[in-house]
Design a protein around this nucleic acid. Sequence first.
DNA 1: TGTCTATGTTGACGTCTATCGATACAGGTG
DNA 2: CACCTGTATCGATAGACGTCAACATAGACA
Lengths: 124, 124
Amino acid sequence: MSNAKVLPLLEPADGQGVAPCCPPLTERPMTAEEAETAARMFKALGDPVRLRLFSAVASHEGGEACVCDISDVGVSQPTVSHHLKKLKEAGLLTSERRGTWVYYRVEPSVLAAMGKLLALPAAA
Amino acid sequence: MSNAKVLPLLEPADGQGVAPCCPPLTERPMTAEEAETAARMFKALGDPVRLRLFSAVASHEGGEACVCDISDVGVSQPTVSHHLKKLKEAGLLTSERRGTWVYYRVEPSVLAAMGKLLALPAAA
DNA sequence: TGTCTATGTTGACGTCTATCGATACAGGTG
DNA sequence: CACCTGTATCGATAGACGTCAACATAGACA
């Protein structure tokens, strides 16, 4: 396994590319299931170390980075690995081994889905 | 105290209305301080119960709701109160007592700031 | 094959957190 | 004033989480 079990944040898509898991937070009260799903994404970004790791990958050229490029966040190597795994399980990152190094890249559609969740209703 | 100590998510504002705490995640790697601040917001939405409470307030007419309107999320009353407090501490909600009831309302500028954090670089 | 580097996994430990019942506080009503 | 309702706080408890050192695994290279 590698990218095997990831959160089903995006439906099979209705023809477009980005199908958010849930309607905007301001549209209607979320159901328990929707909240469960969406909370997993927010929770994944709710740790400073993970947020820095994610930002490092997201801002790296090509939207992808080797672990060696981003692991300077002040915690041990196992901890970095642990957090990257969490981000992967949340569906925010995918990973791929290429020779000696492992590269992580952002899942842009998931990022977009989260953005939509926070969308304001026109001019709030 | 009531709305006393809230996160400084928004600078005093440079004349506009919405000054996000940090640049978009994809712009450059976040600093430790930026990550600390932003992670608090995400963490606040990283719990299913809080997410439902927040969504209930945000989607309620006028962007404001009495606790009695939204407290049907399957947990006890003290737990609801606890989560609303957390959301307030994160700067996502403000509260005001009007007679018998306490009303919570969303802080639209903070919501916008979070949305900007997740903004994609043009057409990703 | 053996060894070196890069990354992931395991197990343990301390801290944080979600939850509850009991209780306190605030405001309305009588 | 006493009493009732709505909301917040307190204290306790169980479970989740972040972190590390030790170890395991994967690939490169000699």
